[in-house]
Design a binder for these strands. Structure first.
Ligand code: DCP
Ligand code: MG
Length: 470
DNA sequence: ACGGATAGCACC
DNA sequence: TGGTGCTAT
């Protein structure tokens, strides 16, 4: 028979609507979490610093005073007030203070002899829970999420007969328009007859995003930025264009203008070795230059998968869907030991596995209560002489003791294969989660399936992909 | 001295 | 399945 249903090849079928994809990224996130806990820090230049001079041995609770302005660890988050002084992530405390004498340095909490990121994780989860009200929501990191708000945008387009209305807080809304970046007023005052379907959907999506950002701000006190475009690649690119506290719409007509002068490394997944290699092998720097390279040449140089993928990326095309997933797929924790403190005995391995297992067991326990799931697999990882190895096994139980001893057994097996070793990195992780939700009625089952693993209306859509770009 | 603690995914 | 390497925040 014919490989495709004939109707798909006719022009009588209306085109699927372009997806409205959003990337949301909290501003100076760990700093905002700390300001929320200590409002006296509001408006000041601050940075969050990880590492303490005693090797994280002393527990520092989230509720304790954690401002240590003589702290010399490295900065993992920097407020916008501090950035104005030239303070940057990865700077050391002393260097940062030279740039900004008023800088307030907040130390990450510690427990079990290691940094404890619980307060940031929980704040991130609160944000995700709000964003998920807007549509399909994918947790992308502790402070980022992708949303697919196509359905709500379509609903509004039908309700308002097209005609997007100016979003909430229009001064926080930018458009990459025909004359470069501009405020959104001009774009939103496009006459009714002049909107393209795709732009109209983006505009409605932008209104949804403005409302979600407003809820995050008022309910949690956190500001964020967002990008609104037709796919994840472009939405992510846009969310970073006007930080902080701004959202940016990228109409299809502006994609090429945005990409042409952009350094290749700015594209997600090209920020590392591959991006460097692409630029070097081709002797180019920008996405525009990459777009000029024939697909056949990219295929020859980078392979049958990577070549065409680069070709599409240079055109702002990416087809990976926004997944419905608000929870992390794995929980892990670990600690790095500087050369001097490197672990050289099994006794010390055992001690540190126990410490790390305390945190992991605690997190697995609260995750189980909150999310009705338990991990089926655990693993241990370590670095020795610069090489990283990992071993995994079935989850032996959820207690500190069972996790620590299973971890130790895995390490023993590894040690047995080696004459000499020195552990400079040790971590435990848990993954492969299974639901333990109480046996639900059919109706309840379908409800939670749509919320947890399902794809919402995305998943019910016809099998051919919703077009992201022409 | 000090570039830490996490997380997801492609690939074999 | 289990394991490594890359990319990212
Ligand atoms: N190498 C990194 C990068 C980030 N983070 C943490 C601290 C950040 O606050 C948070 C979010 O990372 P972002 O890259 O989004 O940076 P910020 O949110 O701090 O700032 P921005 O406003 O630029 O997004 O993740 C980290 O621990 N280590
Ligand atoms: Mg951020």
């Amino acid at each position: 028979g014919h490989p495709h249903p004939v109707w798909r090849m006719t022009s009588r079928v209306p085109a699927l609507p372009r997806a409205v994809v959003v990337h949301v990224d909290l501003d100076a996130f760990y700093c905002q979490v700390e300001v929320g806990r200590d409002p006296s820090l509001q408006g000041q230049p601050i940075a969050v610093v990880q590492y303490n001079p005693f090797g994280d041995l002393r527990t520092i609770l989230p509720s304790e005073p954690r401002i240590f302005n003589d702290s010399n660890g490295s900065l993992i988050a920097v407020s916008y007030e501090a950035r104005a002084f030239g303070v940057k992530r990865n700077m050391r405390g002393d260097e940062a203070r030279r740039q900004c004498p008023e800088l307030q340095l907040v130390q990450v909490p510690t427990a079990n002899g290691k940094a404890d990121l619980t307060i940031y994780r929980e704040a991130g989860a609160q944000v995700i829970d709000i964003l998920a009200r807007g549509g399909v929501c994918e947790r992308a990191s502790i402070d980022e999420a992708y949303l697919d708000v196509t359905e709500e945008a379509l609903r509004r387009a039908r309700r308002d007969h097209g005609r997007p209305v100016l979003p909430l807080n229009p001064e926080q809304c930018r458009v990459y328009g025909p004359d470069g970046v501009a405020g959104c007023e001009a774009w939103f005052s496009t006459p009714d007859w002049a909107w393209s379907d795709a732009d109209e959907l983006l505009a409605h999506g932008a209104a949804v995003v403005a409302e979600l950002r407003h809820v995050v701000q008022t309910e949690l006190g956190y500001s964020c930025s967002a990008g609104i475009a037709h796919n994840k690649l472009l939405a992510k690119l846009c969310s970073g264009l006007h930080k902080p506290q701004q959202q940016t719409i990228l109409p299809e007509s502006a994609v090429q203008r945005l990409l042409d002068p952009l350094m290749i490394a700015k594209l997600r997944s090209l920020g590392g070795k591959l991006g460097q290699q692409v630029a070097q092998v081709l002797g180019i720097e920008t996405v525009g230059q990459l777009r000029a390279v024939p697909e056949t040449r990219l295929r020859t140089l980078f392979g049958p998968e990577t070549g065409p993928w680069l070709h599409r990326m240079a055109r702002g095309q990416s087809s990976d869907r926004v997944q419905q997933r608000t929870l992390p797929k794995s929980l892990g924790c670990g600690k790095t030991f500087r050369a001097q403190n490197a672990i050289r005995t099994l006794q010390d391995v055992q001690y540190w596995l126990q410490q790390i297992a305390r945190e992991l067991a605690e997190r697995i326990g609260s995750d189980r209560e909150r999310n009705q799931r338990v991990p089926q697999t655990m693993g241990v990882g370590l670095s020795s002489h610069g090489d990283h190895v990992s071993r995994s096994c079935a989850m032996p139980g959820l207690s500190v003791e069972s996790i620590a001893s299973a971890g130790l057994a895995l390490v023993r097996r590894w040690v047995a294969e080696r004459a000499e070793w020195t552990v400079t990195d040790l971590y435990l992780s848990a993954c492969n989660f299974r639901s333990i939700a109480a046996c639900p009625s059919i109706a309840t089952f379908f409800q939670s399936a749509a919320g947890e693993g399902g794809q919402g209306t995305q998943g019910l859509a016809p099998p051919d992909p919703r077009p992201d770009s022409p």
